[in-house]
Amino acid sequence: MSNIISIIQGLLVIVPALISVAFVTISERKVMASMQRRVGPNAVGYYGLLQAFADALKLLLKEYVAPTQANIILFFLGPVITLIFALLGYLVIPYAPGTFISDHRLGIFFMLAVSAIATYGILLAGWSANSKYAFLGSLRSTAQLISYELILSSVLLLVILLTGSLNVITIVESQKAVSLLLPLLPLFIVFFIGSIAETNRAPFDLAEAESELVSGFMTEHSASIFVFFFLAEYASIILICILNSILFFGGYLSIIVFSIISLLDLSREDTLFHVLISIISSSPINLAVKTSILVFVFIWVRASFPRIRFDQLMSVCWLVLLPITIAYVILLPCVVSGLLINPVNISLL
């Protein structure tokens, strides 16, 4: 019985994730079409909504090409690793209070580690293909991912300083009064730039720059292993948007509904309406709306900015963003200690 419950819980997390991966691809194409005054895909299904499924089906039925000069095992293992570790991050996401698969006390560390291991998949895939475009693409991608991961982890450090716990749900619940966007606005901007670069999105998609490297580290990959890269890229976009909304927008908490409750003093009454509004104030729909808005911003950024050069990319990371975050890492503990507002970590007392 408990096994069946475990399976249902796992499927309830992973199926919406895969469905939204499919619809993020189609929404990217539709939104970019609208921004460029085109129609976009509109043939498959109503308004082209089933285009992503048609693409996936087509790619799954394509011939797989295993190049003779490649290391075949690593060639197939790289995309698999990327997909597995891009999807494993959904393990620690809280959808509502008490609604999570794993309540790990080091949940944020788990997310960081899993997104870091996905880099190895790209490195393996690019190196094992034994093609110069794939090799150069994987080199660039690895350098970019590890550089921007530094920024992500140091911003995370400051979030943890203000919330006092590595547990994801504690981080969300500690934003009940005010979401961390307000005290950490500059860091949110840095984190958002870092997360765009971490997911290899335009304008930082140097790893798969079509005009110079044919398709980057996945030049030689075809059929289902290409689908793996595709799924992993969009799954990590959604995951990092969820991470953004958890860290800076209060995750599943709705600040607006909370302020309505406190303004109208609704919390004391006990009718059905008030119970309903208190359920809505911390429910999965808030997380979903915040995540979708952030995904839209990702697509908007892609449609707006031209691609930058690789040396500019690395310079922006190491010479602009990293000094800013390091300055904050030095400043913020001093401010917090000076004002004596250190959060108490209960598990240490």
Partner: peptide, 15 residues
Amino acid sequence: LPFGIIIGSFTVGGA
């Protein structure tokens, strides 16, 4: 429309 479906699927899954 796809964003609506994303929000819907995450909400249904979370609920």
